[in-house]
């Protein structure tokens, strides 16, 4: 059986979300495809494990589908979605954070210390909040208000965390 065609991919998020709320699965899948790339990259960098990242994306989008009736359009759809995806990633990350970090860096001892490994190491060394804010800003392109909304923190806290993270990385990487 062929699935019905997806709606045009240039429709705004909110329109697609509205259609998805009415049960239009193809509209939701269009949204999934729109955000899948950034979501995977973000989760991969946050969790530093491709398998966990995939699980987080699956769980996050599934929760988004289930939670669509509760989306009232008060915030931007993408802010709402990132909050769900981030929480899904957090749920997977909490119990295994340390082990994952160690495992990854032990797994590549014979490589030259290339620049990207240094970035990975320094990001991993950041405090959790700073790391999250930096990844949201750099990887997802969220602005400070959106980051504050996704993380449930104040604007000032997001701003301070981002500044600290950048300065620390700049210092360590140069």
């Amino acid at each position: 059986m062929t699935s019905p065609p997806h709606p045009p991919s240039d429709l705004p998020d909110e329109l697609l979300a509205g259609r998805a709320q009415g049960g239009d699965r193809t509209a939701f899948e269009t949204l999934v495809l729109r955000y899948l790339g950034p979501a995977r990259a973000f989760c991969a960098k946050l969790l530093r494990d491709p398998v966990l990242a995939e699980d987080a994306c699956q769980e996050g989008f599934l929760k988004a589908w289930r939670g669509l009736p509760g989306f009232r359009g008060d915030a931007k759809f993408r802010t709402w979605l990132w909050r769900i995806l981030f929480n899904a990633a957090q749920d997977l990350r909490r119990p295994r954070l340390e082990a994952i970090g160690e495992r990854e860096f032990e797994a590549v001892p014979d490589r030259d210390v290339a620049a990207e490994d240094a970035v990975a190491r320094e990001i991993a060394a950041l405090p959790a909040r700073q790391r999250e804010v930096l990844l949201m800003r750099a990887e997802l392109g969220l602005d400070l208000e959106e980051i504050a909304g996704v993380l449930g923190i104040t604007y000032e806290a997001a701003k301070a965390s981002l500044s600290l993270a950048r300065n620390r990385l700049k210092e360590r990487l140069t």
Partner: peptide, 21 residues
């Protein structure tokens, strides 16, 4: 620094979009 973070390419899930969907 943001560019460095973006340029970092950790291993990402291997499945394609279709498999994911």
């Amino acid at each position: 620094v943001d560019d460095r973070v973006r340029a970092w390419n950790p291993p990402v899930p291997a499945a394609g979009e279709r498999e994911f969907l």
